[in-house]
Amino acid sequence: MDMLVHGNEKVDLGGLNEAPGFMLRLAQLKVFENFFSEVGGRGLKPGEFSVLWVIRNNPGIRQSILGQSLMIKRAHMTKLIRALEDRNLLSRNIPDEDRRAVELTLTSMGKTEAEAASEWFFAYEQGVGAALSEAEREQLLALLRKFIGI
């Protein structure tokens, strides 16, 4: 059935429910909507947390590699890094051997923030897909990793 139901209204999707890209987009929007209603007031957005967390796990990572890994466009990445640096959560270093590169590390405040945020972030993520059984959730994650190439 190609129907979305909103209250008493039904919307015919005309086969869009068979389009993986469309379904992934709806899933992403649903996850973000739930994120902001449940934990959005905690100070970090999902993208900000993911950047801090990956830097935490890869101290000195080059900004370009981080952006490519998280699929963040260069211009947005520059803005995001500048904002996190302004909040004293990370520091940038330009290595002598490659003056075009930027290496990123967390400040002590950034480490503390990332660790504290990881508790509520991963607790929230455990609830994502609560309508799925544990086996279905693991299957979804395995399929997403395969789709992404992880």
Rank of each mutant, 00 (worst) to 15 (best):
L89C: 01
M23F: 08
G15V: 00
G47N: 10
Q139A: 11
L13M: 14
G47C: 05
T107Y: 01
K45H: 13
P95D: 04
M23K: 12
L140M: 12
G41E: 04
I61K: 05
S50P: 05
D2Q: 13
R99P: 01
E136W: 03
A114P: 05
K73N: 15
E18A: 09
F49D: 06
S133R: 01
E48S: 05
I61W: 07
G7T: 05
K111L: 09
M3F: 14
K73C: 00
A130D: 10
N58L: 12
G110P: 08
N88Y: 02
Q68N: 14
I150K: 11
F32W: 08
I94E: 02
L89D: 04
S69R: 14
E33K: 05
L13H: 12
G40E: 05
E97V: 15
S91V: 15
M109K: 15
N34R: 15
S69V: 06
A75Y: 01
P46A: 06
R82L: 05
P46T: 08
F22K: 01
G127W: 02
H6T: 13
Q139H: 00
D86V: 08
Q126N: 10
E103H: 03
G41P: 00
A135P: 00
S37P: 10
V31H: 09
D96H: 14
L89Y: 04
M71Y: 11
G40Q: 02
R82S: 07
G14M: 05
E138P: 00
G7V: 14
V11M: 09
F32G: 03
N93C: 14
V5R: 12
V39F: 09
I148R: 07
M23E: 13
A101V: 10
F32K: 12
A130N: 11
R137D: 09
M1K: 07
M1F: 05
M77Y: 14
L143I: 01
E113M: 13
G14N: 06
V31L: 00
E48Q: 15
V5N: 01
N88Q: 12
Y124Q: 06
K30P: 04
V39M: 08
F49V: 02
L44F: 02
E97F: 12
